[in-house]
């Protein structure tokens, strides 16, 4: 591994100052489960690594504030997967967090890190999209809050400015009941990078929100407000076109080692259908 300087700011302000000073030569270190791999393989060669885990303002922790679930930036997957509120109100996120890597990985990997890496295959991204999660980012100009959907550009690239730091991920607590589920496809049953990862949420008003990843340069959110998809009793002839429309934005890469485009597109539909059925059943309290 090439060498770099290590900074351990105690406050967000300090962290921002370091990021501002070094610009793209600085990388934020949260869990390190992606960063350290890339430091070793040389695909990232920062001059300074900024460890945010000792910043008290950044948690770790999950709390409720102003009708939102606030997940601090250094909160790890294991905590999220085990959190009672997440499991109850954000089932698909709990399910996604529970399949990110192994126990060892989930004890280090953070939700904020998973989001900031902007991997198209990030397992938590679809669930964050369907729950309408927001990113809270601190920067030189202050704090801004914006939908996770506005963060992703393509693999490894986000709309964050180099001097911005994600301080939390916030999820609005749903006003009414939601049925939701996460589903993924991997090459083996043991932990693996997803060749398709998706989440579905259905609400009592019949709105279906589906998001999927690993089938294009960035995760995609699609919303169906027709009510037809959420209706388990709707005839196939009605649901089929609506269902098909959900996947129009999928464009899997033919270069992937994990699965071919044709298979990914087919699995998107299989898993989408299964997750939708699970979500509907959960909404019905089954």
């Amino acid at each position: 591994m090439h060498t770099f300087a290590y900074a351990r700011p105690a406050t967000v302000a300090e962290a921002l100052a370091i990021l501002a000073e070094h610009g793209p030569d600085a990388r934020v270190l949260a869990g390190g489960t992606d960063l350290v791999i890339r430091l070793r393989d040389g695909s990232l060669r920062p001059r300074v690594v900024v460890d945010i885990k000792r910043i008290a303002e950044l948690g770790p922790g999950i709390r409720v504030a102003d009708g939102r679930l606030v997940i601090a930036a250094t909160t790890v997957m294991a905590e999220i997967a085990a959190d009672e509120r997440v499991r109850r109100d954000f089932t698909a996120l709990a399910e996604a967090a529970a399949v990110v890597g192994s126990v060892q990985i989930r004890n280090r990997a953070t939700l904020a890190g998973n989001v900031c890496n902007a991997s198209p295959a990030a397992d938590t991204a679809p669930s964050l999209l369907v729950y309408g999660a927001e990113v809270v980012a601190a920067g030189p100009a202050g704090v801004r809050r914006f939908p996770v959907d506005d963060l992703f550009v393509r693999s490894g690239v986000t709309t964050l400015a180099p001097a911005e730091l994600v301080t939390a991920i916030e999820l609005p607590i749903p006003a009414g009941r939601l049925g939701a589920a996460h589903a993924r496809r991997t090459r083996r049953r043991g932990h693996d990078l997803a060749s398709v990862t998706l989440a579905v949420a259905v609400d009592a008003a019949g709105v279906t929100r589906l998001a999927y990843g690993s089938v294009g340069p960035r995760p995609v959110l699609v919303v169906d407000e027709s009510g037809v998809l959420a209706d388990a009793a709707a005839p196939d002839a009605a649901t089929a076109p609506a269902f098909e429309r959900l996947f129009a934005a999928a464009s899997p890469s033919p270069r992937s080692m994990r699965a071919g485009p044709e298979y990914r597109l087919a699995m998107l539909r299989v898993l989408g259908g299964r997750a939708l059925r699970t979500a509907i059943a959960r909404l019905a309290g089954e």
Binding site: L29, G32, V36, D51, Q104, R108
Partner: peptide
């Protein structure tokens, strides 16, 4: 795998300074 502050981690992905 080692135990760090009560949780197991892959020590290859943890910088010693952490």
């Amino acid at each position: 795998t080692v135990r760090l502050d009560g949780r197991i981690v892959d020590s290859c992905l943890v910088l010693a300074v952490e």
